[in-house]
Protein backbone atom coordinates (compact mmCIF):
# COMPACT_ATOMS: atom_id res chain seq x y z
CA UNK A 1 0.00 0.00 0.00
CA UNK A 2 1.33 3.45 -0.84
CA UNK A 3 1.71 5.75 2.12
CA UNK A 4 -0.51 8.84 2.48
CA UNK A 5 2.49 10.98 3.35
CA UNK A 6 6.02 10.01 2.44
CA UNK A 7 8.86 12.09 3.80
CA UNK A 8 12.22 11.41 2.16
CA UNK A 9 15.58 12.60 3.41
CA UNK A 10 14.13 15.81 4.80
CA UNK A 11 16.80 18.23 5.99
CA UNK A 12 16.34 21.67 7.50
CA UNK A 13 19.14 24.09 8.34
CA UNK A 14 18.84 27.36 10.23
CA UNK A 15 22.02 29.22 9.48
CA UNK A 16 24.65 26.86 10.81
CA UNK A 17 22.25 24.84 12.89
CA UNK A 18 20.88 21.61 11.48
CA UNK A 19 17.41 21.16 12.94
CA UNK A 20 16.48 18.10 10.87
CA UNK A 21 18.83 15.70 9.20
CA UNK A 22 17.81 13.36 6.37
CA UNK A 23 14.61 12.30 8.05
CA UNK A 24 12.45 9.56 6.52
CA UNK A 25 8.91 8.94 7.66
CA UNK A 26 5.82 7.37 6.15
CA UNK A 27 2.25 7.62 7.31
CA UNK A 28 -0.45 5.39 5.91
CA UNK A 29 -4.12 6.30 5.60
CA UNK A 30 -6.00 6.21 8.89
CA UNK A 31 -2.82 5.41 10.76
CA UNK A 32 -1.75 7.19 13.95
CA UNK A 33 1.95 7.88 14.20
CA UNK A 34 3.51 9.52 17.24
CA UNK A 35 6.58 11.69 17.01
CA UNK A 36 8.46 11.80 20.28
CA UNK A 37 11.80 13.07 21.44
CA UNK A 38 13.34 15.56 23.82
CA UNK A 39 12.54 19.27 23.60
CA UNK A 40 14.32 20.90 20.72
CA UNK A 41 14.73 17.64 18.85
CA UNK A 42 13.11 19.10 15.73
CA UNK A 43 9.58 17.75 16.02
CA UNK A 44 7.77 21.05 15.50
CA UNK A 45 10.28 21.93 12.79
CA UNK A 46 9.13 18.81 10.93
CA UNK A 47 5.52 20.02 11.20
CA UNK A 48 6.55 23.40 9.89
CA UNK A 49 8.34 21.78 6.95
CA UNK A 50 5.39 19.59 6.07
CA UNK A 51 2.86 22.43 6.28
CA UNK A 52 4.91 24.84 4.19
CA UNK A 53 5.76 27.33 6.94
CA UNK A 54 9.44 26.49 6.49
CA UNK A 55 11.03 25.54 3.23
CA UNK A 56 13.21 22.45 3.78
CA UNK A 57 16.86 22.72 2.82
CA UNK A 58 16.84 19.32 1.15
CA UNK A 59 14.56 16.35 0.71
CA UNK A 60 10.84 16.45 0.23
CA UNK A 61 7.47 15.35 1.42
CA UNK A 62 4.96 13.81 -0.97
CA UNK A 63 1.27 13.46 -0.38
CA UNK A 64 -0.99 10.89 -1.97
CA UNK A 65 -3.64 13.24 -3.29
CA UNK A 66 -7.35 12.49 -3.17
CA UNK A 67 -7.29 11.36 -6.82
CA UNK A 68 -4.57 8.83 -6.06
CA UNK A 69 -1.72 10.76 -7.64
CA UNK A 70 1.34 11.60 -5.62
CA UNK A 71 1.96 15.33 -5.18
CA UNK A 72 5.10 16.96 -3.90
CA UNK A 73 4.54 19.48 -1.12
CA UNK A 74 7.74 21.24 -2.04
CA UNK A 75 7.38 24.99 -2.46
CA UNK A 76 3.69 25.03 -1.58
CA UNK A 77 2.35 27.72 0.70
CA UNK A 78 0.70 26.67 3.97
CA UNK A 79 -2.76 27.39 2.62
CA UNK A 80 -2.11 25.22 -0.45
CA UNK A 81 -0.97 22.37 1.76
CA UNK A 82 -4.14 22.73 3.78
CA UNK A 83 -6.22 22.66 0.62
CA UNK A 84 -4.53 19.37 -0.33
CA UNK A 85 -5.72 17.81 2.92
CA UNK A 86 -3.14 18.32 5.64
CA UNK A 87 -4.03 20.47 8.63
CA UNK A 88 -2.41 21.09 11.97
CA UNK A 89 -2.79 22.43 15.47
CA UNK A 90 -0.22 24.55 17.28
CA UNK A 91 1.83 23.80 20.34
CA UNK A 92 1.09 27.20 21.84
CA UNK A 93 -2.61 27.57 21.12
CA UNK A 94 -3.18 29.90 18.18
CA UNK A 95 -6.89 30.47 17.99
CA UNK A 96 -8.44 33.61 16.57
CA UNK A 97 -8.98 34.96 20.06
CA UNK A 98 -11.56 37.66 19.51
CA UNK A 99 -13.67 35.59 17.16
CA UNK A 100 -16.30 33.22 18.48
CA UNK A 101 -15.66 29.50 18.73
CA UNK A 102 -18.06 28.94 15.86
CA UNK A 103 -16.34 31.50 13.66
CA UNK A 104 -13.01 29.85 14.40
CA UNK A 105 -14.35 26.61 13.01
CA UNK A 106 -15.97 28.45 10.11
CA UNK A 107 -12.51 29.76 9.19
CA UNK A 108 -11.57 26.13 8.83
CA UNK A 109 -14.40 25.78 6.29
CA UNK A 110 -12.91 28.66 4.29
CA UNK A 111 -10.89 26.51 1.90
CA UNK A 112 -13.86 24.22 1.24
CA UNK A 113 -16.24 27.04 0.33
CA UNK A 114 -16.26 29.36 -2.64
CA UNK A 115 -18.19 32.60 -2.11
CA UNK A 116 -16.23 35.62 -3.31
CA UNK A 117 -16.46 39.37 -3.04
CA UNK A 118 -19.36 39.73 -5.45
CA UNK A 119 -21.25 36.99 -3.63
CA UNK A 120 -20.65 38.69 -0.31
CA UNK A 121 -21.91 42.06 -1.55
CA UNK A 122 -24.89 40.79 -3.51
CA UNK A 123 -25.65 38.11 -0.93
CA UNK A 124 -27.35 35.96 -3.54
CA UNK A 125 -29.07 32.69 -2.87
CA UNK A 126 -25.97 30.57 -3.45
CA UNK A 127 -23.90 32.61 -1.04
CA UNK A 128 -26.56 32.50 1.63
CA UNK A 129 -26.98 28.76 1.27
CA UNK A 130 -23.25 28.22 1.45
CA UNK A 131 -22.94 30.45 4.50
CA UNK A 132 -25.75 28.63 6.28
CA UNK A 133 -24.22 25.29 5.34
CA UNK A 134 -20.80 26.36 6.67
CA UNK A 135 -22.36 27.51 9.95
CA UNK A 136 -24.31 24.26 10.30
CA UNK A 137 -21.30 22.11 9.52
CA UNK A 138 -19.20 24.05 11.98
CA UNK A 139 -21.82 23.78 14.68
CA UNK A 140 -21.99 20.05 14.12
CA UNK A 141 -18.24 19.85 14.57
CA UNK A 142 -18.43 21.89 17.77
CA UNK A 143 -21.09 19.50 19.08
CA UNK A 144 -18.85 16.57 18.26
CA UNK A 145 -16.05 18.13 20.30
CA UNK A 146 -18.32 19.03 23.20
CA UNK A 147 -18.07 22.73 22.51
CA UNK A 148 -21.57 23.58 21.28
CA UNK A 149 -22.50 25.59 24.34
CA UNK A 150 -19.47 27.81 23.71
CA UNK A 151 -20.42 28.38 20.06
CA UNK A 152 -20.95 32.13 20.39
CA UNK A 153 -18.27 32.82 23.02
CA UNK A 154 -15.00 34.48 22.06
CA UNK A 155 -12.36 31.81 21.68
CA UNK A 156 -10.00 33.39 24.21
CA UNK A 157 -12.67 33.22 26.92
CA UNK A 158 -12.90 29.43 26.71
CA UNK A 159 -11.33 27.24 29.39
CA UNK A 160 -7.90 25.93 28.49
CA UNK A 161 -8.90 22.37 27.68
CA UNK A 162 -11.75 23.62 25.53
CA UNK A 163 -9.34 25.84 23.59
CA UNK A 164 -7.19 22.82 22.82
CA UNK A 165 -10.22 20.91 21.57
CA UNK A 166 -11.37 23.92 19.56
CA UNK A 167 -8.03 23.94 17.77
CA UNK A 168 -8.58 20.35 16.71
CA UNK A 169 -12.15 21.09 15.67
CA UNK A 170 -10.96 24.02 13.59
CA UNK A 171 -8.36 21.85 11.88
CA UNK A 172 -10.95 19.13 11.22
CA UNK A 173 -13.18 21.66 9.52
CA UNK A 174 -10.69 21.81 6.66
CA UNK A 175 -11.49 18.13 5.94
CA UNK A 176 -7.92 16.90 6.32
CA UNK A 177 -6.86 13.40 5.43
CA UNK A 178 -3.81 13.90 7.61
CA UNK A 179 -4.05 15.76 10.89
CA UNK A 180 -0.92 17.04 12.60
CA UNK A 181 -1.35 17.50 16.36
CA UNK A 182 1.38 19.41 18.17
CA UNK A 183 1.27 18.48 21.86
CA UNK A 184 -2.51 18.45 22.11
CA UNK A 185 -2.46 17.32 25.74
CA UNK A 186 0.06 19.90 26.95
CA UNK A 187 -1.21 21.54 30.11
CA UNK A 188 -4.26 19.29 30.39
CA UNK A 189 -5.19 17.44 33.57
CA UNK A 190 -5.68 13.69 33.60
CA UNK A 191 -9.40 13.93 33.02
CA UNK A 192 -9.06 16.28 30.07
CA UNK A 193 -6.33 14.08 28.60
CA UNK A 194 -8.62 11.07 28.77
CA UNK A 195 -11.36 12.96 26.99
CA UNK A 196 -8.83 13.96 24.34
CA UNK A 197 -7.81 10.32 23.96
CA UNK A 198 -11.42 9.38 23.22
CA UNK A 199 -11.80 12.23 20.73
CA UNK A 200 -8.70 11.23 18.81
CA UNK A 201 -9.74 7.57 18.69
CA UNK A 202 -13.12 8.65 17.34
CA UNK A 203 -11.53 10.87 14.70
CA UNK A 204 -9.50 7.92 13.50
CA UNK A 205 -12.34 5.45 13.52
CA UNK A 206 -15.23 7.59 12.29
CA UNK A 207 -13.49 9.98 9.94
CA UNK A 208 -10.67 7.69 8.85
CA UNK A 209 -8.17 10.52 9.25
CA UNK A 210 -4.48 9.76 9.59
CA UNK A 211 -2.79 11.44 12.53
CA UNK A 212 0.77 12.52 13.19
CA UNK A 213 1.07 13.35 16.86
CA UNK A 214 3.75 15.16 18.83
CA UNK A 215 3.23 14.46 22.49
CA UNK A 216 5.17 14.22 25.72
CA UNK A 217 2.46 12.41 27.68
CA UNK A 218 3.68 8.85 27.19
CA UNK A 219 0.48 7.26 28.41
CA UNK A 220 -1.42 9.04 25.64
CA UNK A 221 1.23 8.17 23.06
CA UNK A 222 1.27 4.49 24.00
CA UNK A 223 -2.50 4.27 23.98
CA UNK A 224 -3.02 6.02 20.63
CA UNK A 225 -0.05 5.40 18.39
CA UNK A 226 0.27 2.45 16.07
CA UNK A 227 3.81 3.47 15.25
CA UNK A 228 6.22 5.69 17.09
CA UNK A 229 9.06 7.64 15.59
CA UNK A 230 11.73 8.91 17.97
CA UNK A 231 13.85 11.90 17.01
CA UNK A 232 16.82 13.40 18.77
CA UNK A 233 19.04 16.21 17.50
CA UNK A 234 17.08 16.25 14.26
CA UNK A 235 17.74 12.61 13.43
CA UNK A 236 15.44 9.66 13.63
CA UNK A 237 16.94 7.35 16.23
CA UNK A 238 14.22 4.70 16.32
CA UNK A 239 10.93 3.77 14.73
CA UNK A 240 8.53 0.94 15.40
CA UNK A 241 5.52 -0.21 17.35
CA UNK A 242 5.14 1.15 20.87
CA UNK A 243 6.45 -2.11 22.31
CA UNK A 244 9.53 -2.06 20.08
CA UNK A 245 10.34 1.54 20.81
CA UNK A 246 10.00 1.02 24.53
CA UNK A 247 12.71 -1.63 24.45
CA UNK A 248 15.06 0.26 22.15
CA UNK A 249 18.31 1.09 23.95
CA UNK A 250 18.98 4.23 21.90
CA UNK A 251 15.63 5.62 22.95
CA UNK A 252 16.19 4.84 26.59
CA UNK A 253 19.54 6.55 26.39
CA UNK A 254 18.15 9.67 24.74
CA UNK A 255 15.50 9.95 27.37
CA UNK A 256 17.66 9.06 30.33
CA UNK A 257 20.14 11.62 29.10
CA UNK A 258 17.39 14.13 29.72
CA UNK A 259 16.81 12.67 33.17
CA UNK A 260 13.50 11.25 32.14
CA UNK A 261 12.85 7.57 31.80
CA UNK A 262 10.24 6.14 29.51
CA UNK A 263 9.22 3.67 32.12
CA UNK A 264 8.41 6.44 34.53
CA UNK A 265 5.97 7.85 32.03
CA UNK A 266 4.50 4.68 30.71
Amino acid sequence: MTPLLAIRQLTMDFGGLRALEALDLSIHPAQTVALIGPNGAGKTTLFNCITGIYRPTAGEARLQAADGRSTSLQGLKPNQVTALGICRTFQNIRLFGHMSALENVMIGRHCRTRAGIAGAILRNRRTRDEERQAADDSYRLLTKFGLARHANDPANSLPYGAQRRLEIARAMATEPRLLLLDEPAAGMNAQETQALDRIIVRLREEEGVAILLIEHDMRLVMSLAQRICVVDYGRKIAEGTPAEVRRNPAVIKAYLGEDESMEAHA
Binding site: T51, I53, K77, P78, N79, T82, C87, R88, F90, R94, L95, F96, G97, H98, M99, E103, M106, I107, G108, H110, C111, T113, A115, G116, I117, G119, A120, R123, T127, E130, E131, A134, R170, A171, T174
Partner: peptide, 20 residues
Protein backbone atom coordinates in the same frame (compact mmCIF):
# COMPACT_ATOMS: atom_id res chain seq x y z
CA UNK B 1 -19.14 36.96 4.86
CA UNK B 2 -16.54 34.35 4.10
CA UNK B 3 -14.20 37.13 2.93
CA UNK B 4 -14.79 39.23 6.04
CA UNK B 5 -14.05 36.30 8.28
CA UNK B 6 -10.81 35.63 6.47
CA UNK B 7 -9.81 39.29 7.04
CA UNK B 8 -10.49 38.99 10.73
CA UNK B 9 -8.55 35.75 10.95
CA UNK B 10 -5.68 37.57 9.26
CA UNK B 11 -5.87 40.29 11.89
CA UNK B 12 -5.95 37.83 14.77
CA UNK B 13 -3.09 35.58 13.67
CA UNK B 14 -1.62 35.60 10.20
CA UNK B 15 0.33 32.36 10.55
CA UNK B 16 -2.63 30.45 11.92
CA UNK B 17 -4.92 31.91 9.26
CA UNK B 18 -2.65 30.69 6.51
CA UNK B 19 -2.30 27.29 8.14
CA UNK B 20 -6.10 27.02 8.20
Amino acid sequence: SRIGRSWEALREDETAAQAM
